[in-house]
Design a binder for these strands. Structure first.
Lengths: 187, 187
DNA sequence: GCTACATTGTACCGAACGTTCTAACCGGAA
DNA sequence: TTCCGGTTAGAACGTTCGGTACAATGTAGC
């Protein structure tokens, strides 16, 4: 069998980039074909159910990256502040230093919403509970920990929106730098 | 001459609702026609340049609402905390109690981005500077005021994204309630 | 070299896209 | 009452949409 011209990993990365740039509804099959360098036939060969399956694969792939870059560092053992700094570095990479939109934002809009809303919800609550657990481990009481975890997720998402609107990533960079203080610091 | 079946105000409100629900690329002319109750001919009669002009009109209209509901209360005279609470009520209404997406988010995605990015930027900087001025008026030093103003904008945008993802508006409601503390409160 | 099969380019489908057009409608000025 | 012109519905334009069909390609295993 002829080997794939390009590894599936790379295909998913390029699909993700296209979805991030155009959103779900704006990412047409032709654009996805251009972005990957694969013809329509190849795309439909790999993703029998078309655009929706591409988006689902991207969602899973990106979720894996997030797990690896952010969740894993957070759930290690060791000093909570160091773990948060590692997660901040992971987030910086995961979001292309603030240049990339979050799938959580994009897939909550338009026709993607019908497909992904339940999964979006569980990603948010999952991330929040990992953050909250870390804060409690560092001695923060449960109520405060949950509130701060929510604040951190809100701040990350908001910073990405603001970065995209202004064309500057300074808000995003600052949120990441302040991440340990935002979760563990004084009220 | 026959009067318009529906006032232009109402048309813009319905167009805005449709854009908010589907995003720019997802809001097709047929959907915009359904949403307004106007046929394609009427839509193109009022907006000669089609979808782009509709979006521009919506942007201006929504911008006017924002000015009226949020900026005006912030730039009145009187106690800064009271003004912030009034602005919070305005934001609550402006964002449909947290159920509506922000144009700042939606129009930063896909083909709308090319059209609106400069205007998005100036909306953000404008809102931030009004907030920052208010904080300074309340005695906050300039550096801190600017940082907190940015934080507030980030928090509002992030809360809307999280609310859409989770289907709950509690994050948004909390951000609004904490708004005076977030801008004026202790570090 | 032959076969089997994963992969690909190309042509094509019906539907929907944004837009244009025409013809009808209808209230007010003449 | 006639007619003007703002307003309307809806058909039709060419293009692109998401998706399918199929024949050609080329390599791995025999």
């Amino acid at each position: 069998m002829p080997a794939a011209i390009i590894p599936k990993e790379a295909v998913l990365d390029r699909l993700a980039a296209a979805f991030r740039q155009h959103g779900y509804d704006g990412a047409s099959i032709s654009r996805l074909s251009e972005a990957t360098g694969l013809g329509k036939a190849s795309l439909y060969h790999y993703f029998r159910n078309g655009k929706q399956e591409m988006a689902e694969a991207v969602f899973a792939h990106v979720g894996g990256n997030f797990q690896e870059l952010v969740i894993v560092p957070l759930t290690r053992t060791g000093d909570p502040t160091r773990r948060l700094r590692a997660a901040a570095r992971g987030l910086d990479e995961f979001y292309g230093r603030g240049d990339w939109s979050c799938i959580l934002d994009l897939f909550g809009i338009g026709s993607a919403r019908q497909i992904f809303q339940p999964q979006l919800r569980s990603v948010v609550t999952g991330f929040e509970s990992v953050l909250s657990d870390l804060a409690q481990e560092a001695g923060v009481d449960r109520i405060t920990a949950r509130r701060r975890a929510e604040d951190v997720v809100v701040a990350i998402q908001g910073a990405l929106v603001v970065a995209r609107a202004t064309g500057e990533r300074k808000a995003f960079t600052r949120v990441l730098k302040e991440l340990p203080n935002r979760l563990l610091g004084i009220d």
